[in-house]
Write a protein that binds this DNA or RNA. Sequence first.
RNA 1: GCCGAGGUGGUAGAGUGGUCAAAUACUCGGGUCUGUAAAACCCGCGGCGCAAGCCUACACAGGUUCGAUCCCUGUCCUCGGCA
Length: 374
Amino acid sequence: MPFKFTKNADGTGVITTDSGTVTTPIFMPVGTAAAVKALDARDISETGAEIILANTYHLYLRPGQNLVAEMGGVSRFMNWEGPVLTDSGGFQVFSLGAGSRGEKLSKIDEDGVTFKSHLDGSIHRFSPESAMDTQKDLGSDIIMAFDECTPDMADRPYAEAALNRTYRWAKRCINQWEKNKRMGTNGKYQALFGIIQGSVYKDLRIEACKQISDLPFDGIALGGETIGYNMESTLEIVSWLKELLPKDKPLYAMGLGRDPDNVVEIIKAGVDMFDCVAPTRLARNGALYVGEIRGDKFESEFENGRLNIGNAIWAKDNKPILDDCDCFTCKSGYTRSYLRHLYLSKELSYYRLASIHNVRFMVRLSKESRKLPR
RNA sequence: GCCGAGGUGGUAGAGUGGUCAAAUACUCGGGUCUGUAAAACCCGCGGCGCAAGCCUACACAGGUUCGAUCCCUGUCCUCGGCA
């Protein structure tokens, strides 16, 4: 069954894939290496998440796409009975190339990108074609075009060059995808999403939007560091493009969802899908979401809607993380006091309990945001 | 009781006449996190102060010295060995 997207007048929708359906708008937890860190498939499912991400670059390095293909594709491999979206490795062009830890591990050229493996330092090469082929083997339900993730506030010449390259690569991705019969090695239909770059520049975003919208992609993504990272610009970008975007394709904001109010705002803006590592990473690093929608806005007694569970004030707090939360952790009676203890002790159960809360929080928040006027 | 070793910050543990408010690690306090190089990283950690800086400190009490955590004497305490 091919990919299908239906959107209702109220802004909600349904995505149909060979691995199941997804209701939108939806938050997608990130499971880079075919694992939502600290959670197993049942935990993920119980948070209400309907689709998860995995990453081409990471799975290519380990365990290798051939092994994943042999195991039936990423969903079956990780025992997840639902759709999976794989990022193409385009984000690693940005994150490994930024040299944020000193060494630059990726270098881009017209044909593709050379990576130095963060695992063992070995050299690898990705191109639009290879990214499609690797994702074919991974057998994910939604695959992403190989793009150049542009830094927020990139200067104009840079942003323009990245945009044009992303467009040339988009066409190459389409060709390879067609060559692969739009199908994973596991026999599942693979929807291909194109990515709009253009940094913070209105004319560039509009140009990219037209370019990407004219190609036969199944969905459209907003890419670049700006998305989510710079919320003011993100919302502005959506408003610039809203009327230009195809109505019959889902709109995906890549990497967005660090703060609860980001989620509420982006759903009000009309985006259908978004993902972020923040809920799981923040959980592992001690930040737990607290707050709720009041009126048409997210509100919290804490800055950015989260508390730091390691803080001394929670030492004797016997309340759950969030009073009305229906996540496993809160419902089960785990107190802030105990979670703080687990966190400070680096007990393994902490990571799971915290991640369950944060993911459930974002899933529930996105479902509740569907009721807000758009 | 005798012999030996030693007493340094919240802990462990460097230092050994001036450059020491004291390495390093941990603990503790706080912060960051955005298509995951992240169960990671950053800052602080004697007192007061925004700061410059001032004050109090290396068991305790004296002493030698221009100057002592470091040398000497005594006291107290801890640990190991022998009785």
